[in-house]
Every structure is written in C-alpha cells, then in structure tokens.
Design a protein around this nucleic acid. Sequence first.
DNA 1: AGTTTTTCTGTCGTTACCTCA
DNA 2: GGTGAGGTAACGACAGAAAAA
Length: 237
Amino acid sequence: MMERAEDLGLSLSLSSSLAAPRTHHVSAMLLRSPEKRFLEMPLLPAKRSEVTAEEGLLRGGSDEEDGSCGIDGSRKKLRLSKDQSAVLEDSFREHPTLNPRQKAALAQQLGLRPRQVEVWFQNRRARTKLKQTEVDCEFLKRCCETLTEENRRLQKEVQELRALKLVSPHLYMHMSPPTTLTMCPSCERVSSSGANSTGAAASSDRRAGGAIISTAAAAAEGAAICHRPIAVRPQQS
DNA sequence: AGTTTTTCTGTCGTTACCTCA
DNA sequence: GGTGAGGTAACGACAGAAAAA
C-alpha cells in the first residue's frame, strides 16, 4: 500500500480506487485504440501519434514527466540501453517477479519509472513462457514421432509372429504367445519414479514461486516411462 | 466470524513504435 | 525511399489473493 504510493505520483494509470482506474482506463483506451475509438468517439484522431498533447495528458500524464511524450503528444517508444537490459536480465534471472521494494530500487538504479520496470518484467515473463511453450511443443512433437515409430515397430513384430504361427505352428507352440502388450502402469500413476509428476506439474502458471515449471519437463518424466511398453513377454503356461 | 469492498499484482491479448533486411 | 516482418514497450481487461471496512 505504502509502496504502491511511490508509483502513484509517477503514473496516473495506477490510481487507487477501483472505479477510478477503470474509468480512466476506459478513457485511455478510447483515446488509444483506433477500433474502440471509432465505435464511441469517431471524431478523435485515428492514430495514436495524432493524439494531441492535451489528450496525452488525459491518457496517463506520466509520459510527460520522463520526456517520453513528443510535443504533439505522441509517445516516443523507449528503447532500453544494453546496460539497462543487462541489469534487468540479471535481476530477472535472480527472481522473475519483483516485490514493490525491489521494483523501486531497480527503477531508481536504472533511472526508469517503477511502472516501466514492472512492464518489462511482465513482458519478460511472457516471452519466457512463450519460449517455453515452443520448447514444450517441440519436445512433444518428438515424443509423438518416437511413439509412432515404436508403434510401427511393434505392429511389424506382431505381423511377423502371426506369420510364424501360420508357417510353423509347432514351432510357434513352443514359444508361448504374447498375452498382453502392457503400457507402463505409470499412466495409471503406479510408477515409482515419476508417477506424480505429470499431473502435479501440468500447469506452468506458478505465481507465488515465480519459477516457471516446464510442462514438457513434466511430460518428459511421464512420457519416458509410459510410452515404452514394458514387455511383449511370452507367458509360461 | 463471515461478508463485502478495495487494493494490488499477475496473466493475457493487443497495439503501436522501432529497427532491419 | 517504401515495405513487411519481427522484437518489444506499453496498455487495457480481467482474475484472484490479500487487506481493510
């Protein structure tokens, strides 16, 4: 609450009551988004860069303070310096989420507004998640290929055994037929090693811990166990 | 102690600016 | 110089948790 007040003076968009920010956001949105603006305020300029300085103030006010707003009210896009990015990256590696104190300290250290640091972390988390999703996707694709290949191999084996049965039944009789093609019981959570992991780590949205847990990593544990048939074992009768 | 309201902070989806090929 | 793609800062909407009333 108190730390939140630090932001207050710097960004109007973070004002405190629920109703106020909402209405403020709405007006900001109307000024910012061409489509919605068209729906409700068709006379306003169509592009953000065409928004006047007065409207720029309505939009948030804080831009004025850091000089990121042009004379015409258009907001110049801030490009973080390499040093700033490096510090933020380091900080992110240390803790992907910031408490208000850390945020303020970081902002001060970098000469940015706390809101900017906050946004940077939000975007950084989003990027990390996106990347992880891509990795997960790639991994699952490979799993699928492996399973397909395995399936193909086993089907072939079955065909061969059937052929053998037809050609030389007596020989076949000596080797007891495979009774079952059993999938790993870990699918049913019986495995000793990774039984719990698949479900438990299914979600990669972990707020409190801050750590992003890979779904693929979780799946990997499960998959490594369950996609492999335990045995096609002749059963002694 | 339980309920409602407020505040804060997270994700998600999107926009728009900027750079580069 | 114009253009499209990709990266990313910034934003609004919304949800959920915690604190306050």
